[in-house]
């Protein structure tokens, strides 16, 4: 415990001495002669409206004629607590960027000083970015004489974060208070649009696959027939049943009994089916063989049933206003098989 107290006492003494030394060092140095140093300062854009947490940056350009040179150790120290009349002023240097350019007869120093405000008040109060002393060394003198040059302070006002007297901060919210948030609305809009597109794409996929009837127009006659045909056995009876389901679907879709001799009226009424005009004619040919020609070779087998299923799917696509895939290749093979 004693050891700890001793350490704390030693550190406090060193800090105090350091402050003393700094003050002495600059206070007793002579000012550099006029004309040796030229300065240009880019101050913050406004001098009001700052509050706790804000960062103010000064861009300082100092040109020092030779033989004078800047003692770089005299540049301000980041994090150093600044005091005025013994009181912390609550404005600390949070960042320093330094670079220099040497010319024949002078050196230009670019110093960027960023101060962060750590103080506040219930009313607006004046404050200042502190003046800084730079030390210059005259390299031509025998005893290497040191001079000082003061970067001037800059006055501004610190604003309170709320109106004085307000107890509930929520009632005095201000756009200038608190951290500024990035505007996420374009990203949110984009995300919403993309999610909508994804949802529509998924629904369209389900619609096209069409196994279920919970979407609009999915319970059409051909969708129902397609589900029945997919379950039909690969026999002559299965083909007969499948053709029967298709006839029912065609009749239901047309609103009357459809035959090969009133197909044109149906196509005029439902132009979407014109894409499969040839397939419709082929279907009625197949139906004639299946139902009305007792001595005809009854088409049987997996291939014919698959053709009927694909034809039904085409009809279902037409029913939904989609353009169906062509069945020309399968049609040819099915016809060969039937022959």
């Amino acid at each position: 415990m004693k050891k700890l107290l001793r350490t704390l006492l030693t550190l406090s003494s060193i800090t105090l001495l350091h402050h003393q030394a700094y003050a002495l060092e600059t206070d007793f140095l002579p000012d550099v002669k006029a004309g040796i140093v030229s300065i240009h300062i880019q101050e913050p854009e406004r001098d009001v409206g700052y509050t706790v947490g804000d960062v103010l940056t000064r861009e300082i350009t100092v040109t020092i004629k030779k033989p004078y040179v800047l003692v770089e150790e005299s540049l301000p120290i980041v994090g150093y607590e600044r005091r005025y009349k013994g009181q912390l002023i609550g404005i600390d240097l949070s960042k320093l960027d330094y670079s220099k350019e040497s010319a024949k007869d002078a050196t230009t120093h670019h110093i960027s000083l960023s101060y962060q405000v750590f103080t506040n008040n219930v009313v607006a109060k004046p404050a200042a970015l502190p003046g800084e002393y730079l030390r210059l060394l005259d390299t031509s003198s025998k005893d290497k004489k040191v001079y000082r040059y003061r970067i001037p302070s800059w006055n501004f006002s610190i604003s309170p974060i709320s109106v004085f007297g307000q107890v509930k901060i929520e009632q005095d919210m201000s756009g200038y208070r608190g951290p500024l948030l990035l505007d996420a609305s374009p990203l949110q809009t984009r995300l919403t649009v993309l999610l909508a597109v994804l949802a529509i794409a998924l629904l369209t996929l389900l619609y096209m696959l069409g196994k279920y009837t919970w979407l609009p127009r999915m319970g059409g006659p051909f969708a129902k027939a397609y589900r029945s045909i997919r379950k039909a056995p690969h026999t002559a009876e299965g083909i007969q049943g499948a053709a029967s389901h298709l006839h029912e679907a065609l009749n239901s879709s047309a609103g009357y009994s459809l035959f090969s001799n009133n197909l044109n009226a149906f196509l005029a009424k439902k132009p979407a089916f014109q894409h499969i005009q040839a397939e419709l004619a082929q279907f009625f040919e197949l139906s004639r063989q299946v139902f009305f020609e007792p001595n005809a070779d009854k088409p049987a087998g997996e291939q014919q049933l698959a053709w009927l299923a694909r034809f039904c799917k085409q009809c279902r696509d037409c029913e939904r206003g989609l353009i169906p895939d062509s069945l020309s290749t399968t049609r040819n093979s099915a016809t060969r098989k039937a022959a």
């Binding site: 009994s257 035959f259 139906s287």
Partner: peptide, 8 residues
């Protein structure tokens, strides 16, 4: 009648 009666 032709429109109403289905075959098959």
């Amino acid at each position: 009648i032709i429109n109403a009666v289905a075959a098959p």
